[in-house]
Design a binder for these strands. Structure first.
Lengths: 213, 213
DNA sequence: TTGCAAATGTGAGGATTACTCATATTCTGA
DNA sequence: TCAGAATATGAGTAATCCTCACATTTGCAA
């Protein structure tokens, strides 16, 4: 008795700028809007962020905000996109020239530390990735990002274990990466000391899996 | 000023019934409210659930709803609490008499299958645990639940590996359990086939960790 | 039974907030 | 120079959570 599934329900749609700023003036204003949003998220969390407050702090009208962002989530999404783009390059570089088990262990361990440090230090990043499960657009972005990152890991695994089934390696890499993100979220939501222990435990667990044959 | 002492910080406080129903009549009505909420969540998700709609479907006024639930999240929380209470007993039973590695492997594998099946079959459970990251009260409930479940696992590990450091075993069990919940959420958000593979990969990974020395 | 306090029931309306739109202003290119 | 595109504005709209003053029902002691 269900309706025929619509290909894309409005809720799932990824929000993109309603109109790309083409003039220098508007580009600067959009930057101010994002900066204001970022500051407010750091202070209160994205849920408590009010559109009127973003506009006021950016020194623009509420109408201007909606000129470039179709809705509230689009602003958060735009910020999230920047983080993923930045981190992706970093991850690619760290894993690019890994060629043996020892190298993987070292690179992976460092990556986890960097990520954990980022989560601890960047309230905006923390907030955005916490809300990730609830917001479908964000969830899709995170999944896409995670798949991309997992591919770097898959590439390394294929070099280290050429005999293994490629599909299995892909699944393993994707799972390990996602578990890492979940471990980070968990770690930052408990006491710092326990968080550290959990991250360390994750490292051991992940490496055991990555290096198993 | 208020005589009713409510020593609570509004944001983080776990929402409990504003007033426990003491008469038979009101208990039945509260049940109807929860049933209506459950149905609506199954249909549209808890985010799209409207308080007015819950009241209407339960055949009560909006005021009655707020007589027993301080806010919208409290309804979701009440439903979540039931699921956790139910599943906890099931988990305790499954792990209670595990005494060797083989038994753990079997019991754990079955538990994962049951959980995965539940997530796939129960839209309400799926929805509630998806929103878990965003809602602090829900997150706390899930953490508490997870710790409780991890304790059963810890007890088993202590029996199997009496020489190991207890604190390490506790961390391992908690992490493995949380990773399991994350794996479930991941698995149900991708294609069924990939989800199955991810759950299988999680099983291998978790068991390798649990049975390692 | 009767009376009364406590428990419960009600729904119009207050308050907040995301978002729109008619209109005004600024910019760009020919 | 000037038409039209891009941008800016903010009062107003709509949706929705939740309150509150008042009505009704229930439990129970006299």
């Amino acid at each position: 008795m269900e309706d025929t599934a619509t290909p894309v329900s409005p809720q799932d749609q990824v929000a993109s700028p309603r109109r790309a700023p083409s003039q220098q003036r508007s580009r600067e204003r959009v930057e101010r809007m994002l900066a204001a949003a970022s500051a407010l998220i750091a202070e209160q969390g994205s849920d408590a962020m009010r559109m009127g407050e973003v506009a006021e702090r950016a020194g623009v009208s509420i109408g201007s905000l909606y000129q470039f962002f179709p809705d509230k989530r689009a602003i958060v999404w735009a910020l999230a996109e920047r983080y993923t783009a930045e981190s992706q390059a970093c991850i690619a570089a760290a894993l690019a020239d890994v060629s043996d088990a020892e190298g993987l262990g070292k690179a992976f361990s460092e990556l986890v530390d960097i990520y954990y440090g980022l989560f601890l230090a960047e309230p905006v990043m923390r907030d955005i990735w916490s809300g990730t499960q609830a917001d479908k657009a964000l969830r899709q972005l995170e999944l896409a990002d995670s798949r991309a990152n997992a591919e770097f890991l898959t590439a390394v695994l294929k070099r280290l274990r050429p005999a293994a089934d490629p599909a299995t390696l892909e699944t393993t890499a994707f799972l390990v990466w996602q578990m890492g993100e979940a471990a980070m979220r968990l770690a930052i939501s408990v006491e710092r000391q326990e968080g550290d222990r959990l991250v360390a435990a994750y490292k051991r667990m992940a490496l055991r899996e990555l290096l198993a044959e």
